[in-house]
Amino acid sequence: MTSWPDLIFEKLREFGIRHVAYVPDAGLARLIELCQAADDMEPTVLTTEEEGIGILAGAWLGGERGALLMQSSGVGNCINALSLAKVCGFPLLMIVTMRGEWGEMNPWQIPMGQITGKTLQLAGVIVYEVTKPEAAAPTVEAAARICFNGGLAVAILLSQRMLGTKLFKD
């Protein structure tokens, strides 16, 4: 069975996404690798997640589509920058891997992880939660349609229920 990152990658391709801006997360490692290996994609590693909102806005102004990949902790870094997409009516597709949401072992992840979805919704972003691997690619497809057809900001939250929970081991 093809893994969910590979299936999401195929969806990004189908939607003509070229710019992939990201701050790495362990849960996104495979998807980032696939994007880096694709000749027709332009992956950009960021120093902070909000840079991705600017880059994707610029890419859209230049006639191209993109997606922002980040961990839930990075959502908090994006809030004011989200006004760029909202005010200008730019589509913004975000794929967020969750921490601090389900069985988290790091207490520092919990405050942001518990408010990630609500924060995005307050900022005017449409939020889809994915808890099962098989739902990931279909959700990305549905989200991308709404995003690019509606000129809207949409976030897909990939739950720790599907990613697995990182634990300290010897």
Binding site: E42, E50, I53, G54, I55, G58, W60, G62, L84
Partner: peptide, 22 residues
């Protein structure tokens, strides 16, 4: 011209995205 009047700190990244796309 594309004028930002908010999203402080984003001017350079908007320029970068545009430069990469064009």
């Amino acid at each position: 011209n594309f004028y930002l009047w908010g999203a402080m700190g984003s001017a350079v990244t908007v320029g970068l995205g545009l430069a990469l796309a064009q």
